[in-house]
């Protein structure tokens, strides 16, 4: 099963559409609730990051009976220091985004905690690709 989403930047209303759509489909194909929960949390976090930092982008999700793979590609500014971004509490979000309750940091570590494998490929000035893999069963 493949799902594709194109998420515009700076539109917080649409951020979350991929994770909530995927959630319903995972329920329908009978994936365990705890796996769904981890997937939703990781993907939602990555989606929000893509909107806030990456100026939007494309999400491709593949589901097989053994795993869920999500790839989020943006063409934003990239992450200057991935190690720093992986630290708990580190955030570059603007005040406007924080007022909405987002941007408290923890994004990347939270994705890592909830996934079985996570990869970040980033080139400053060109964009970021985040890959998340979660095992089923």
């Amino acid at each position: 099963m493949q799902l594709n989403f194109s998420i515009p930047g700076d539109d917080m209303d649409l951020a979350g559409i991929a994770s909530s759509t995927l959630k319903k489909k995972l329920q329908q194909i009978g994936v365990d609730n705890s796996v769904i929960k981890r997937t939703v949390v990781a993907l939602y976090e990555a989606e929000i990051n893509m909107v806030i930092h990456g100026g939007g982008g494309d999400i491709t999700i593949n589901v097989t009976p053994t795993e869920i793979q999500c790839e989020l590609v943006d063409h934003g500014p990239g992450i200057a220091d991935v190690n720093l971004a992986m630290q708990e509490g580190y955030s570059t979000a603007t005040d406007a985004i924080r007022e909405m309750g987002f941007g408290a940091g923890m994004g990347l570590p939270n994705i890592q905690r909830n996934s079985d494998h996570m990869e970040i490929h980033t080139v400053p000035g060109e964009g970021t690709t985040v890959k998340i893999m979660i095992k089923i069963g």
Binding site: M1, K24, K25, Q28, I29, G30, V31, I136
Partner: peptide
């Protein structure tokens, strides 16, 4: 909301 007890079958149905 589950489509089938068999996950491979359910994924096929979802496609």
């Amino acid at each position: 909301l589950k489509l089938s007890e068999n996950m491979s079958e359910a994924i096929k149905m979802m496609d």
